[in-house]
Design a protein around this nucleic acid. Structure first.
Length: 861
RNA sequence: GCCGGGGUGGCGGAAUUGGUAGACGCGCUGGACUCAAAAUCCAGUGAGGGAAACUUCGUGUCGGUUCGAUUCCGACCCUCGGCACCA
């Protein structure tokens, strides 16, 4: 054994061993308990970032721990390879997205190997390869045949100057990121998947996902947003056509004083034909952003269409407004407005001078003040004809029943969840396998013609997708009639690929089926790990896809991920200067010199390049667009993979967000050097004799107690709590105790040997390379990667004496050592004997004594 | 705006079920070793008072429940993530 810890040599040797022994290549073994541990696969952006290192270290720690527990562990890795950044890089560097992506994958694979993650590389998938996405195309056609896929128009962000569709990310303050043109909404035909058909199951199954964090389940519940209410039909006066609205508060129906429809609603458009001012208003609404956050924060505007509708109960004439906050694609594209009992309606009514009619009174008789805000509580009905006097709950039934009797309304369950629009007007994605024939309409690509391959060798000009200008791609023949036809040139949303990759890892080489019987062994994923930012969209789509695959007979499990660990984000400060055009030019943290106040907080910064100040922006998740990523490669090269892994796991518990700072990396490295030296100094003396547990001194017993308690706590931390940071701090304490333990006797050395073995095993999942070396150094013949996790010895953990805290009125006044065998009276006597405690009890009357076994005594005076 | 997190020393964090607040690490201060530096080792380190024993305050803010609250409840402030075309 080297006297010095040399991470490069240690890591090279361990990685060579794992690869030669094929330690992480697994097959289905029905005799062994399986454990499928999956970390969210990366987008191949070019280099690993800290978030990846954090994510994949957590996954590897859990995988290696479960291996030591004797499970058959599958840990695969792959690439979420389609997406917008490849197109951006193509424009910037004049390189085809495919080439750029494959090169990134090659580099990042090397980085992952350098970090020592135990992946089964035989199962690697890249979603941009036709042998992967052909199955997605295949499933899409199956779902089309089942009626779960349909086409409708939906809005996109449209740049009229570049004549292209923009992603939300490419819209900055309502303008195109490239040319600053005002972005418009444009309705275009797109493909949708009926996720709403699964809304009920997606919602109710959340109750059984006990292995998921409660916060994620809550977010998904709210996102799906089941509500019970009524569909109510108003009648447009003049034309007599029906105008349906959905409301969760049918009890307030008599308080409706106007209706609001989306600007794109057919009624509004028709009225605009004879009303230029309304047409102008509708036109203005076209510049409205598509993002919900922007919709909700914008100024609520409306315009009277001049049309009126008859109230279904009173027949009153209610004005119909076109309003920018009503969404055409959501519900009926129309809402009834009750300004007395809805805050948004209240504000709108005040702005446009519309009547406010109170129809709900407080149950407790309090006066309702409608001059400052709407009254949104449930209560008792007033001003509601025959319904007055009913409670809100009674009125919901009474009013919907009345409406039902005239055919003007019915109870309805509504979901906030909308169907999933999967069309993207972009190049770097999986082609949607559909053909448009003038004679036959939309025809799916026949199964034997799959995959529809995306041409990779293209010239990327910047605006617009190249395949939309490639006749050799889109010109084809109709599979039905054989006539001239055109392919769909839109590609799939990249969330499609990431919605089923977890299943493909079980049968990555099958060219006859999407997944095969092997999936039944491995699925569901036992532990899924990924960023909290995926709590809703990705995780909901993956759950949806799992159910789709189940319903076409591919898998048996209802849910894809039994346990979920949502890792907190790695965040960092942003630095930028404003350009002449008002755009932010971001600086990487490596390019600036920070200035901190006396509390260590960042207050200002200068650029290294010119020494001039840069603006310190908000702290955000590390991303390319904000250029605030810190490259982990430097860490690995300077200190080795184990230090990088150790520091990542030590810096914070996995679920907490981590504000990046490299202060402390040195400490992690120092700890590994000390551990190495301790083992070295111990084994340099020679082999140890076996431990005789019955003949130990109290110091020897104490070190054993610490060792086994550390093991006991680490087991729970790995298995249940995922608090890897406390595994590390616990091991540090233990090795500190070993360092202070100076006993050189044979039994003393045996106790030390046991402690060092426990340290190597406990640390092995986190720092597997150094553990590999230390384990051999401690005289073991089998590699630590094959070692079994030991059980903590309950006898070794027992103490003869225990420290009790003595409080007087809840304040700490003393500590006493008490034999563990002492009874209640003896413990109280010990507590009262403390000098300081006596001082505080002098002249006081003892009211009560509270004893918490093994912890404290509180004397109440 | 809506939904979901987070806030504890100079810094990262610990305190597992309402029971010793600040484990462990970083940084800093002092010392040892060294010609010197690095590395390493030893000691100290929440704030105030005290020579010390000890004591008062202290977990974003304000209020509540309790013998006892970082932990439970209510209101608020700040901050982060998501909001359906970033992934």
């Amino acid at each position: 054994m080297d006297a010095q810890y040399q991470p490069q040599a240690v890591e090279f040797e361990a990685q060579r061993f794992w690869e030669e022994q094929k330690c992480f290549e697994v097959t289905e073994d029905p005799n062994k308990e399986k454990f499928y541990c999956l970390s969210m696969f990366p987008y191949p952006s070019g280099r690993l970032h800290m978030g990846h290192v954090r994510n994949y270290t957590i996954g590897d720690v859990i995988s290696r721990f479960q291996r030591m527990r004797g499970k058959n562990v599958l840990q695969p890795m792959g690439w979420d390879a389609f997406g917008l950044p490849a197109e951006n890089a193509a424009i910037k560097n004049n390189v085809a997205p495919a080439k750029w992506t494959y090169e990134n994958i090659d580099y990042m694979r090397t980085q992952l190997k350098q970090l020592g993650f135990g992946y089964d590389w035989q199962r690697e998938v890249a979603t941009c390869r036709p042998d992967y996405y052909r199955w997605e195309q295949w499933l899409f056609i199956k779902l089309y045949e089942k009626g779960l896929v349909y086409k409708k128009t939906a809005p996109v962000n449209w740049c009229p100057h570049d004549v292209t569709v923009l992603a939300n990310e490419q819209v900055i303050d309502g303008r195109c990121w490239r040319c600053d043109t005002l972005v418009e909404r444009k309705e275009i035909p797109q493909w949708f998947m009926r996720i709403t058909q699964y809304a009920d199951e997606l919602l109710t199954e959340l109750d059984h996902l006990d292995g998921w964090p409660e916060q994620v389940r809550t977010m998904q519940r709210n996102w799906i947003g089941r509500s019970e209410g009524a569909e109510i039909q108003f009648t447009v006066e003049g034309s007599g056509e029906a105008l349906k609205v959905y409301t969760t508060r049918p009890d307030t129906l008599l308080g409706a004083t106007y209706l609001a429809v989306a600007p794109e609603h057919p009624l509004a458009l028709r009225a605009a034909q004879t009303n230029p001012l309304l047409a102008e208003f509708i036109n203005q609404c076209r510049t409205m952003a598509t993002a919900e956050a922007a919709m909700e924060t914008m100024e609520k505007l409306g315009f009277n269409t001049g049309l009126t509708a008859a109230h279904p109960l009173t027949g009153k004439h209610l004005p119909i407004f076109a309003a920018n906050f009503v969404l055409m694609g959501y519900g009926e594209g129309a809402v009834m407005s009750v300004p007395a009992h809805d805050q948004r309606d209240w504000e709108f009514a005040h702005k446009y001078g519309l009547p406010i009619t109170q129809v709900i009174a407080a149950t407790n008789g309090d006066v309702v003040d409608l001059t400052t805000a709407a009254y949104t509580e449930k209560g008792v009905l007033i001003n509601s004809a025959e319904f007055s006097g009913l409670s809100s709950a009674q009125a919901v039934d009474a009013i919907t029943n009345k409406l039902a009797s005239t055919g003007l309304g019915k109870k309805r369950v509504n979901f906030r969840l909308r169907d999933w629009g999967v069309s993207r007007q972009r190049y770097w994605g999986a082609p949607i396998p559909m053909i448009h024939c003038a004679a036959c309409g939309t025809v799916p690509v026949p199964e034997q013609d799959l995959p529809v391959v995306l041409p990779e060798n293209i010239v990327f000009e910047g605006v617009g997708s190249p395949i939309k200008k490639m006749p050799e791609f889109y010109r084809t023949h109709c599979p039905k009639c054989g006539g001239e036809a055109e392919r769909e040139t839109d590609t799939f949303d990249t969330f499609m690929e990431s919605s089923w990759y977890f299943a493909r890892y079980a049968s990555p080489d099958n060219d006859q089926a999407m997944v095969d019987a092997r999936a039944k062994y491995w699925l569901p994923v036992d532990q899924y790990i990924g960023g909290i930012e995926h709590a809703i969209l990705h995780l909901l789509y993956a759950r949806f896809f799992n159910k789709l695959m189940r319903d076409v007979g591919l898998v048996e499990n209802n849910e894809p991920f039994t346990n979920l660990l949502t890792q907190g984000m790695v965040v960092a400060s942003t630095f930028y200067r404003l350009g002449d055009d008002g755009k932010k030019n971001f600086f990487n943290p490596a390019e600036i010199i920070p200035e901190r106040d006396e509390r260590g907080r960042l207050v200002a910064a200068k650029a290294k390049s010119d020494g001039q100040p840069v603006i310190v922006g908000s702290t955000e998740k590390m991303s390319k667009s904000k250029n605030n990523g810190v490259d982990p490669q430097i860490l690995v090269e300077q200190y080795g993979a184990d230090t990088a892994r150790l520091f990542m796991m030590f810096a914070a518990p996995p679920e907490m967000s981590l504000d990046w700072s490299d202060a402390g990396v040195e400490g992690a490295s120092r700890f590994l050097r000390r551990a190495w030296k301790q083992v070295h100094d111990h084994v340099a003396v020679g082999a140890t004799t076996p431990l005789t547990v019955t003949e130990l001194t109290s110091e020897q017993k104490q070190l054993r107690r610490i060792s086994h308690q550390t093991l006991f706590r680490a087991t729970d931390a790995y298995e249940r709590r995922f608090s890897f940071n406390t595994v590390i701090s616990g091991t540090m304490e233990m090795l500190n105790a070993v360092a202070k333990f100076e006993d050189r006797s044979a039994q003393g050395r045996a106790v030390r040997q046991e402690a060092l073995e426990i340290a190597a095993l406990v640390l092995a999942p986190i720092v597997p390379h150094i553990a590999h070396s230390l384990w051999y150094a401690l005289g073991k013949t089998e590699a630590v990667v094959h070692a079994r996790w030991p059980l903590a010895d309950a006898n070794a953990m027992k103490a003869d004496e225990i420290e009790l805290v003595v409080q007087v009125n809840g304040k700490l006044r003393g500590r006493v050592m008490v034999p563990t065998s002492a009874n209640k009276a003896e413990i109280e006597a010990f507590a009262m004997s403390d000098v300081n405690v006596q001082r505080h009890l002098e002249g006081q009357v003892i009211k009560k004594i509270i004893a918490v076994p093994g912890r404290l005594i509180n004397v109440v005076v």
